[in-house]
């Protein structure tokens, strides 16, 4: 009952061109049937994410550990709420990040859980930069 070969093959890595995404915008791409949010963060969002006392977070993780160094403006997270799997809405909630409409979990501009029933941060999918404006997810 595990995923069949075609499902696994369809889950191969994808490349995403980042050049059309302006600062403050974000796009949603699908990989393995999951929505991946790619946010081009503003300076303010980055500063907010870094100003937080990491130890005070429900799932402590620094912003630096969640983005690729040299590409701090890009946040890539799987847009599936870690509570029960709904899709959070970007640019909503009190933390300049994501807000899940199902049970009210709120994530900050680094995709970290700040408030609500979700137990963990939005996961960062495996990805790397193949060039300055292109990433490969998977």
């Amino acid at each position: 009952m595990n995923p069949d070969a075609s499902t696994i093959a369809a889950g191969a890595p994808i490349e995403v061109d980042l050049s059309p995404v302006a600062e403050g915008q974000d796009i949603k791409v699908f990989w393995r049937g999951k929505p991946i949010y790619i946010s081009h963060r503003t300076k303010k969002q980055i500063d907010e994410a870094r100003a937080v006392n990491v130890a005070s977070l429900p799932d402590p993780q620094s912003d630096e550990a969640r983005v690729k160094s040299g590409h701090e403006q890009w946040l890539v997270v799987i847009g599936i709420c870690t509570h029960l799997g709904c899709i959070p809405i970007a640019h909503e909630g009190n933390y300049d990040g994501f807000f899940c409409p199902c049970h009210g979990s709120q994530y900050d501009s680094s995709g970290r859980i700040r408030q609500g029933p979700a137990p963990a941060n939005l996961p960062v999918p495996p990805y790397q930069f193949v060039s300055d404006t292109k990433i490969q997810i998977g």
């Binding site: 009952m1 595990n2 995923p3 069949d4 499902t7 889950g11 393995r32 049937g33 999951k34 599936i80």
Partner: peptide, 11 residues
């Protein structure tokens, strides 16, 4: 196992 994939889908 329930999904048969990486998310709820055709399987």
């Amino acid at each position: 196992l329930l999904w048969g994939g990486y998310s709820v889908g055709n399987p």
